[in-house]
Amino acid sequence: MVEAKTEVIYQRPESFTDVHTHYCPGCTHGVAHRLVAEVIDEMGLREKTIGVAPVGCSVFAYNYFEMDFVEAAHGRAPAMATGIKRVLPDNTVFTYQGDGDLASIGIAEIMHAAGRGENLTVIFINNAIYGMTGGQMAPTTLPGMKTTSSPYGRDVELAGYPLKMAELLAQMEGSGYIVRRSLHDASNIRKAKKAIRLAFEAQERGLGFSMVELLSSCPTNWSMSAQEALGFVEEKMLPVYPLGDYKVTPALQELRV
């Protein structure tokens, strides 16, 4: 006797609001948002989570998560999150930041949040460009990469080299979990989700500062189709930004999720 059973393999996470996002078609911000929402659902954290949105394309992130949210000044999300977490240590607090926000104007705040071992989770979107302002050079822009403010390609003699935030933050003793993942295909997206899960697990266990850097695409400002942009992440970004676990505190290494 054989009977068929219908399973729901995937549905929109509860922590995601019923709102059409303002992101461009194919932008991986949506993927990153969705993964965070899925992890928060799976861990049952929605009712105690406070998100901190940045300035940049994800400035309206608070519209897309069904949870308490605050909106920080440009780069200051880790400081704002510190303020929240220090007075509400039992709540879950995360920031969601782009590369201009985290690695340029907010580099002091992120380094010191990690240095203090703030028990926060940071989701870091690295798409090597300023999206919201229309495609200017970011601290993470690749050498030679053309942007509206590096129209002849990023000249490292004049504009310096890309900042590698996962590598930098892994040096901090206060960091508990620092990894880099990519969102360019399904298998990497699954790995990214597992990393986000571990980052939130680190926070729930009080294991210190956690950050997941996600290599992301910006089809609009890279002037590519959504699919071409994912190809650019794989071919051009991965060699500059190697994926990997840059710091995993021993207590987390044993955890299976």
Binding site: V70, A72, R76, G83, V87, A108, M111, H112
Partner: peptide, 16 residues
Amino acid sequence: ESEVAAINMVYGAACT
């Protein structure tokens, strides 16, 4: 780490 960070910590905590 700076007054900039300090006031933004105040901002975050004030939101609670």
